[in-house]
Design a protein around this nucleic acid. Structure first.
Lengths: 227, 227
DNA sequence: AGGTAACTTAATGTCGACAATCGACATTAA
DNA sequence: TTAATGTCGATTGTCGACATTAAGTTACCT
């Protein structure tokens, strides 16, 4: 929450710290989707030079949280229906591969860690703590993808997750019940432990498809902003 | 070769133009793999400020042609065996999906264009023009991926291709015979025209695997640099 | 009155300079 | 002789200012 106390030596470049802060501001809806980001203004509010802001924005641009047109300005990405579809397609593709690859690297300790996450889900589901569930969801998937052994796939997934976060955060919840949420991940873990490629691949596809259905349902209902 | 004549109004930011030039320099081996790139030096040779060089390097970093460590410097990426393996895994994953998705968007005119590329391949194969064949190969795959309809997948592939170019350019050729090269793509196109998902998917996997075999063969032989 | 052209304002692109940090060499002590 | 520490040059991080371009505004002409 406060990684850049002015007196402390900071290992990370300032630009990255600011990039992180900007991300949070987008997630918190401090910035509207589609809103224009003025370099000068940001430099003012963060009390750094425009060069630094520029580098920070470049980072966000890589992760597609903002788009910038030359000499026109940079805007917070406004996810259209097509964007959501594209992200889901890519997520399915990446996770299906990563999960099946993860099987061969899956050790006992990993299963333990994952089980811990799923257990926490149960707790949080009982407490109806949606935000915590959301984080655990992200953690679970990240953890498995991290096992796949391909640094490029991992990097793509990290970037994807930032985007997923951005448009999922704006829904109250995408699961009908918190309990179902927990159950789904329990099954995913079971599939992994079985070490059967087809079971895992099917599990991932079903899981994401399920989320998608819920999400699109809400979208067509009320919550999602139109473009 | 000379997009930035000083008198002309340039639509693209300077940094992008310089990024392109840097790419070419890497492909031409003007820079050694692993070589350190000094910002000041580059600013000098290109006659621009360091800020501009910095932005250009950031672009190269995104495409993983250079790696930069904070306060240490940026270096031309030195592709290790693992890097090559990772790239091939990712390429297979992406192309397999993109090609099968492309089926549904494939129109007559696209087939014609692709056929034209393949025809050119035959010509260049007869002429033993390896460089031209190499370019046509890239064109062919790019063209199909472009049809898949998912801009994010396309973007990832573009970035991937830059990397593929970088380490393939350093091989004299990765196909045993130019003729086989042409035949392979002819078959790929046939698979596409058939519009059968399994045929296409199999075709892509075989094709890339074939290239990989050839490549790894050369690597273990003579041409490839060790890490 | 409507539309176009010149003008004004504001934001981005680019620059050169200063500050913080790193790596290497030299110096000193064990 | 070797290892630890201090110093110096080189290099990256950050800054504020100027140049260029885009958008909005006013004035003028038809």
């Amino acid at each position: 929450m406060h990684e850049q106390d002015s007196s402390v030596i900071m290992q990370k470049p300032l630009s990255e710290l600011i990039a992180d802060q900007l991300k949070r501001k987008i997630w918190n809806e401090d910035f509207q989707l589609g809103e224009r980001l003025l370099e000068t203004e940001l430099a003012d509010t963060f009390d750094v030079s425009r060069s630094t802001i520029r580098e920070a924005l470049k980072i966000l641009e890589i992760e597609e949280l903002v788009v910038s047109q030359a000499r026109k300005g940079t805007y917070v990405t406004k996810f259209t229906d097509q964007d959501v579809d594209e992200i889901i397609e890519l997520r399915t593709l990446i996770e299906a591969r990563a999960f099946t690859q993860a099987i061969q690297y899956l050790e006992e300790k990993h299963v333990k860690e994952l089980q811990a996450i799923v257990d926490q889900m149960k707790t949080k589901a009982d407490e109806n703590d949606w935000n915590a569930l959301f984080d655990l969801d992200m953690q679970f998937h990240s953890y498995v993808v991290q096992l796949c052994g391909n640094s490029r796939i991992i990097k793509i997934y990290d970037s994807l997750q930032v985007q997923i976060r951005t448009f999922l955060m704006h829904l109250d919840q995408y699961y009908s019940s918190h309990q179902a949420f927990y159950e789904e991940h329990k099954q995913l873990l079971q599939a992994l432990v079985s070490k059967d490629v087809h079971t895992v691949e099917g599990g991932v596809r079903n899981h994401i498809e399920y989320v998608e259905t819920k999400l699109l349902g809400q979208k067509n209902d009320t919550k999602f902003k139109e473009v």
